[in-house]
Amino acid sequence: MSSRAQTPAKASPPPTMPVSFTVNGKKADLKLDTRTTLLDALREHLKLTGTKKGCDHGQCGACTVIVNGERINSCLSLAMQHQGDEVTTIEGLGMPDDLHPMQAAFVKHDGYQCGYCTPGQICSAVSVLKEIEANIPSHVTGDLTSRMRPTNMEMRERMSGNICRCGAYSNIADAMAEVAGGKA
C-alpha cells in the first residue's frame, strides 16, 4: 500500500542552478530548482502560458515547443537540459496582430475548439511540414527511399502526438494542407 519509504530532505532547500537559453529570440537567465521542467520554466517563471500543460507526462502533446528546430514535449524535459538552447513557443510564432501563416490557417479553418491543445497543435503542425520537407519518414510512409509528401494521411499520422479531445482533427488537416499547398 505505501510507496517506497522516502527520507525527507529536512528543511534544507532543494538544489537550484542557473540556466540560460533563448526563448523566441530573447535570452532567459533563470535560477531554478533542478526539478523544474522546461514547461514549468516557461509557464510559471517566464509567464509564457501559451504552452499548455495537459497531462505533464508526455501523453497529450499540449506542451509541444520547438527546441533548436525540433518539436519536443516540454513537460518531459528539465529546464537544465536546455542550457544554450533556442526555444520557440507559440508566442514566438506569432501574436494576435501578426499571425504566423499556420495560426491564420487554424483561425480560417476553425482548427480548434476549446483552444487548449491548440498552441501544441500549431507548434507540431509547423514542425511536421518541416519534417516532411526534411524527408523524415513516418509510420504511414510507403516507400522509405522516396521523397516525402504532405498527404492527408502523412500529416494525420505525424500529428498524432497532439491529442485534441474536441476532435478538430479534420479542420487541422485542412489548415495544414492550405499552408503546405501555399509552400509548394
Binding site: G58, G61, T64, E70, R71, I72, N73, L76, S77, S124, S127, V128, E131, P137, S138, H139, T141, L144, R158, M159, S160, G161, N162
Partner: peptide
C-alpha cells in the same frame, strides 16, 4: 525505421 516510426509520437521520437 519502421519499428521506430511505429512508436510514440514525433515529439517523443525527437527527444
Amino acid at each position: 525505421t519502421r519499428a521506430i516510426q511505429a512508436g510514440a509520437s514525433g515529439q517523443l521520437r525527437n527527444k
